[in-house]
Computed example of a mutant assay.
Amino acid sequence: MRTVGRAGRVVLVGMGGDEIPLPLSRVQNHELELTGTFRYAHTWPTATALVVSGAVRLDSLVSHGYGLAEAESALTVATHDATAVKAVIYPQR
């Protein structure tokens, strides 16, 4: 939730604990929409088919690339860089 921009949407997928800490001031000040979903059965075959067909391009989601030695930076980039969408670790770098 801390990386979502103003008026963004946060979707909680699957099952979690009965209670979780919620940064309520962030939700209110940034006017975030928060929703949960549990039923996502049979969605992976559809998603995979969309990617394979080229209808959905995943490359554009990658905002940062790191070598294996920079794994910690890859895992934490979203905490300090608002442009971070998807960090990828390339072991061969």
Rank of each mutant, 00 (worst) to 15 (best):
L22T: 11
V10E: 01
V51S: 07
R93M: 06
L68W: 09
L58E: 07
E72I: 05
H80S: 14
A7S: 10
R93H: 13
A82H: 13
I89P: 03
A74S: 06
T76N: 08
S73F: 09
A49L: 11
Y90Q: 12
R6A: 00
G65N: 12
G17P: 04
L34C: 15
H64A: 01
A78R: 11
L12N: 08
A74V: 05
T37M: 13
L68A: 00
V52E: 06
V11K: 01
A7T: 09
R6N: 14
W44L: 11
L34M: 15
T76W: 06
W44Y: 13
A84G: 02
P45G: 11
G54E: 04
N29R: 09
R9S: 04
G5W: 08
T35I: 12
V13M: 10
Y40R: 05
L58Y: 05
Y90C: 05
R93T: 08
P91S: 06
L32V: 10
L24P: 03
A41I: 06
W44T: 10
L34Q: 08
Y40Q: 01
S60A: 13
S25T: 13
Y66V: 03
A55G: 10
S60V: 06
R9F: 00
L68N: 02
A82K: 10
V10D: 01
G16Q: 09
V85H: 08
S63Y: 02
R39N: 14
A49Y: 15
R6D: 09
V27W: 01
S53G: 15
M1E: 05
E72A: 09
T43Y: 09
H80E: 07
L34E: 11
G14D: 03
M15F: 15
A69I: 01
L58M: 14
R39T: 14
R9N: 12
T46F: 12
D18A: 12
G5Q: 09
S63F: 04
V27Y: 02
D59G: 09
D81K: 03
R2G: 10
E70T: 11
T43S: 09
Y90K: 14
R9W: 07
V85M: 14
H42M: 03
G17Q: 14
A69S: 11
G8R: 11
Q92M: 06
V13D: 05
T48P: 00
L58D: 00
E33I: 08
A82C: 12
